[in-house]
Write a protein that binds this DNA or RNA. Structure first.
Length: 280
DNA sequence: AAGGATACCTGAATGC
DNA sequence: TGCATTCAGGTATCCT
């Protein structure tokens, strides 16, 4: 569930709290997440927090960057004297550090940045700044909502693809940033069956789907993201989108539009929620 | 080439 | 009740 709105929520927190700090030291509690040498980052200052789709980049002032992907359960938590008083989500974090804390970045001014990851799918790589976007993950990303995915481009790529529309939306090389939650909700909001070939959508449907992707993500920004799994912001707080999801996570519940029972099936290996009355 | 299945990992939910 | 199996989702990789 960390999709574009969740990762952007984290980026904004990094920009506000972490950028400007110097990295004094790094504690590696468990190996496998951090790829690089401590020496490449210690003593440098964090000067920028960038995001491309679901990927994050912290640029350092020594011409290196930290490329970060939190995958499903990664958490970046910032702590200092001022934020110490803010309680992190008991539900999602408990104590800091906890058993899933893999990295602790010791920053100047007695601040710390923790990387937690229950399932250890995430990664943090040290890469020369001018090579970060050459990494396969960033290099192959498609255009993303709110950025370079214009309606024109969306029309063009949707109408030219035989792929089923839901896996199409979630393919990061076609469009960057959409994951399972927002793909489900955007298709429901648009009244489109997730199994339809992308190119079978007429232009009215494509316009509506484009608008729906934007709308469900805007709603999520307002709610501070979706904390269905382990997502929290850099202060350790949960988001609330999961309580407002249109169809995602509502298996066997009544549809909010027609009252019919929401069905659930796998599509391209992913959990798919579907209202047969409302999605054609 | 493109799309489907599988691996990665672990807590929670479900099944018998 | 309790143990075992399944499930969840983002991406890389293997396979067809």
């Amino acid at each position: 569930m960390p999709e574009l709105p969740e990762v952007e929520t984290i980026r904004r927190g990094l920009e506000k709290y972490v950028v400007g700090h110097k990295i004094l030291d790094l504690a590696i509690l468990h190996t496998g997440i951090f790829e690089g040498e401590k020496e490449q980052i210690i003593g440098s200052q964090i000067i920028k927090a960038r995001r491309y789709a679901k990927g994050l980049i912290l640029d350092l002032d020594n011409s290196f960057s930290l490329a970060i992907h939190i995958k499903l359960t990664g958490q970046l938590i910032y702590r200092d004297a001022a934020t110490e008083k803010i309680e992190v989500s008991k539900d999602k974090v408990g104590t800091i550090p906890n058993a899933f804390t893999h990295l602790i970045f010791y920053l100047d001014q007695e601040a710390m940045l923790y990387y937690n990851d229950q399932r250890r799918f995430g990664w943090i790589r040290v890469v020369p700044t001018n090579e970060v976007l050459e990494m396969k993950f960033f290099k192959t990303l498609g255009p993303e909502p709110f950025k370079d995915l214009t309606l024109d481009i969306f029309q063009k790529i949707v109408s030219g693809s035989p792929t089923k529309i839901k896996p199409f939306l979630m393919d990061q090389e076609k469009i960057g940033g959409i994951g399972n939650i927002y793909a489900n909700d955007a298709l429901f909001r648009s009244g489109i069956d997730p199994r339809r070939p992308a190119k079978s959508l007429n232009s009215g449907e494509i316009n509506l789907l484009y608008e729906s992707v934007i709308k469900v993500m805007e709603k999520s920004f307002e709610e501070g993201g979706a904390s269905e799994l382990s997502f929290i912001n850099v202060l350790g707080q949960e988001g609330g989108y999961q309580r407002h999801a249109l169809i995602y996570g509502r298996r066997r519940e009544p549809c909010i539009k027609c009252g019919g029972v929401i069905e659930f099936f796998k599509l391209a290996g992913r959990g798919t929620y579907f209202c047969k009355n409302c999605q054609k």
